[in-house]
């Protein structure tokens, strides 16, 4: 026991001695390089969707302007604040939290580090936003509306499915936007189309996504839309196996299954993040503001690639997209607005 204590003590002494020789990491670099750091949510930077899109946007910015990009992944929810805090110690000019799960952490850390700029994707602090925080939100329902419309026009069984990750305000945007789009198509075609919703209660469990989607396909759905991060992998896998259509999310996911991905509800987190970061680089103040991005900012929408759907459907979707942009159609984003939308379309 005594020896153990000795070893422990020796270790501590060595470590603290070596610790003294290091200088504090500089909190301001002053070399003219713009530094952006990003903390993705639990999905990590290789999630094929949301976080990856954000990082790709930042890499584009790096190639254009020479800004320096770094990122840290988190293993637990409690890591978010730790990682943000550590980044705030460094020379970063802008620290971006990707995903609304980081909202608490951003709020907490930004209050302690008033000299740093923070941004959060998918969360708006509303009116009482701090002076050094920027909210970046999307009208994802607009993209989902378009893919819902495409699904409604393309389905042969008149039954489509929606697989969500975990129910929250963001996934609600996708779900109700999608349902609204399907409803729009069903009114146009004058046939009822059924939408089956199911949640995987996960953003990572691909096996579960596959099981849910397989079930939907064997129950007669011929198109499934997913908004479930990593779970979507499994959904696409199931589509490949049963030879049915699937609609991707966040990025153009057609490369994952070229013959089965009908289209994707693109949510270009990268473009949005890039725009906001550029604002700051150009010396504009972005703190204390909430930015909203939708079809009109080309941050959500559908990809050009449309080889799996009839030409006329694609063109009609583009027309619809114009209508949404100009405000002729307001797409619902939660249960309440969806009910309103439904009663308005019924009349």
């Amino acid at each position: 026991m005594k020896k153990l204590a000795n070893i422990f003590l020796a270790g501590i002494i060595i470590i603290s001695l070596s610790g003294c020789s290091w200088n504090d990491p500089e909190s301001v670099a002053n070399d003219g390089v713009f530094r952006i750091a990003m903390v993705p949510d639990m999905g990590g930077v290789n999630d094929q969707s949301f976080n990856q899109s954000a990082l790709e946007g930042l890499y584009e910015l790096r190639d254009e302007t020479g800004a320096q990009i770094s990122y840290v992944e988190s293993k637990q929810f409690s890591d978010f604040a730790l990682n943000l805090d550590k980044l705030a110690d460094g020379p970063s000019d802008l620290i971006i939290g990707v995903g609304n799960v980081l909202s608490d952490a951003i709020e907490e850390v930004s209050a302690r580090n008033l000299d740093k700029n923070f941004a959060i994707v998918d969360y708006s602090f509303g009116e009482d936003i701090a002076n050094n925080v920027t909210g970046i939100v999307f009208r994802a329902q607009e993209g989902a509306f378009l893919v819902g419309y495409i699904a409604g026009m393309t389905t042969k069984t008149n039954k489509v499915g929606f697989v969500g990750g975990i129910k929250n305000v963001i996934i609600d945007q996708f779900q109700y936007g999608f349902e609204a789009g399907v409803l729009y198509a069903s009114k146009e075609r004058k046939v009822p189309i059924k939408v089956i919703n199911q949640y995987a209660e996960s953003f990572a469990d691909a096996a579960k996504g596959k099981a849910i989607a397989s079930r939907m396909y064997s129950d007669g759905c011929d198109i499934v839309f997913h908004a479930a991060g990593g779970v979507g992998y499994g959904v696409i896998e199931a589509a490949k196996e049963s030879g049915k259509f699937v609609i991707g999310v966040d990025r153009d996911q057609s490369y994952l299954a070229p013959d089965n991905v009908l289209t994707s509800s693109v949510k270009n987190v990268g473009t949005a993040v890039k725009l906001v970061a550029k604002e700051l680089m150009n010396g504009n103040k972005i703190g204390g503001k909430n930015y909203e991005f939708g079809l009109s900012e080309h941050c959500v929408g559908i990809p050009e690639n449309h080889k799996n759907m009839p030409e006329f459907v694609y063109n009609k979707a583009l027309t619809l997209s114009k209508q949404v942009e100009t405000g002729q159609i307001t797409v619902p984003y939660d249960e309440e607005s969806f009910e309103n939308y439904k009663s308005s379309i019924d009349n």
Partner: peptide, 20 residues
């Protein structure tokens, strides 16, 4: 100890095990 000692003093909705 974690709930009382570490902010945000709350439980998160799990999408996977936190592995503690």
């Amino acid at each position: 100890l974690t709930i009382t000692g570490v902010s945000p003093h709350a439980v998160y909705k799990l999408s996977m095990f936190e592995n503690i």
